[in-house]
């Protein structure tokens, strides 16, 4: 368990101001915030790598605020991995183990176990600069886990990866967390990543914690501009993904089924951009499309565009230009059809 009390850190031109956090043992905790909100510095302060102006950090009932980083028992993974370039993958993994003064055979066993856990055994003799981004990330994770840390701190672990590797590493993170019951603090600016992984999310903006809660609380009742703006630009649902006909996948969200394009199965999240939804007065006939009938329950005027909320009864936020809004003669209470492609839904 980790507890942060009124932590204040100097960030040069602004402060990380009075941060209060409590992360339970075994919890996957997300700190969500835009770039420049002080997320990396918060992690560095927890790890003892950045000086703290005031406040306290408690790890498993012992105060570590002034403790040297090497005595804290914290694993750290930077955004761009930061592997030791002069050491092989194997020696990167052994770096921390050598500090623990264990017998050699035991270090070897732990190293091999970690390599197996992350599927990097074939890479052990390689040099870090010959690895792909995803491989480096796995090595960095294995290295951080090598000292069996109380808490694993992850600084934007997915953002330097290309989309196809990102999903794999994201799964990896979830599995490691579940298998090892590892307490994790993961900072990110990616809302979907936060929802997909976090047991709880803290929203950080301009050096302050704005909101802490479970993922659905955060996006259903956002109390910050950052989250609210995101909630406006994404329709987010939770549902069950299973095999459909013709090799397609189906997601069932509160009794309504949609065609989606994904390899993932199980209880997952779906997001849909408002601009990917087509509004019409008559149903559009198309086999590759999801089409629903609903009622306009809310209209938000944004100048050249309008955000409509269409209740089907699932609420969809849709974006239309002022011109088509007027041409269609849309109004609150009116019945319309909404249509979107299976590929427009992002499953995560």
């Amino acid at each position: 368990m980790i507890e942060i009390k009124k932590l204040t850190v100097n960030l040069g031109d602004f402060l990380l101001d009075g941060v209060d956090l409590k992360v339970e043992k075994g919890e996957y905790f997300i700190v969500l915030g835009p770039t420049g909100a002080g997320k990396t510095v918060l992690l560095e302060a927890i790890a003892g790598l950045h000086p703290v102006r005031s406040g306290e950090i408690w790890l498993d009932g012992r105060e570590v605020t002034k403790l040297e980083p090497e005595k804290r028992g914290i694993g750290f993974v930077y955004q761009d991995y930061v592997l030791f370039p002069h050491l092989s993958v194997k020696d990167n993994l052994l770096f921390g183990l050598k500090q623990t003064k264990r017998p050699k055979e035991e270090m070897g066993r732990v190293m091999e176990w970690l390599a197996e856990l992350l599927g990097i055994t074939p890479l052990l003799e390689r040099s870090p600069d010959t690895l792909s981004g995803g491989e480096r990330q796995k090595v960095a994770l294995a290295r951080a886990l090598s000292t069996s840390p109380e808490v694993l701190l992850l600084d934007e672990p997915l953002s330097a990866l290309d989309p196809q590797h990102r999903e794999g590493v994201q799964q990896e993170l979830r599995q490691i967390h579940q298998r090892l019951k590892q307490t994790v603090i993961h900072v990110t600016h990616d809302f979907e990543e936060a929802i997909a992984l976090g047991d709880r999310i803290a929203v950080l903006g301009a050096g302050r914690i704005l909101q802490i809660g479970k993922p659905d609380e955060i996006f259903r009742q956002p109390n910050s501009e950052f989250v609210a703006r995101f909630a406006m630009t994404r329709n987010i649902f939770t549902g069950e993904v299973r095999d459909g006909d013709h090799g397609q996948a189906i997601i069932a969200i509160e009794g309504t089924e949609f065609e989606v394009v994904t390899e993932l199965r199980g209880r997952l999240h779906a997001s849909l951009r408002p601009e990917d939804i087509l509004i019409s007065e008559e149903p559009l006939i198309s086999s590759a499309r999801n089409s629903l009938k609903g009622t306009i329950t809310d209209i938000a005027d944004r100048g050249a565009t309008r955000y409509l909320t269409v209740s089907t009864p699932l609420d969809f936020v849709c974006l239309v230009t002022r011109r088509s809004f007027e041409e269609l003669g849309l109004a609150e209470g009116e019945e319309v059809y909404i249509t979107f492609k299976a590929s427009a839904i992002h499953i995560f």
């Binding site: 790598l49 750290f76 002069h86 000292t147």
Partner: peptide, 26 residues
Amino acid sequence: DVRLEKVARTLGASPRQTFFRVSLPL
């Protein structure tokens, strides 16, 4: 990269060990 030294610290290396195991070899 200073962060290589920081990572070394989180892996249990003292400042002196970090210097001899990371900074100096690099």
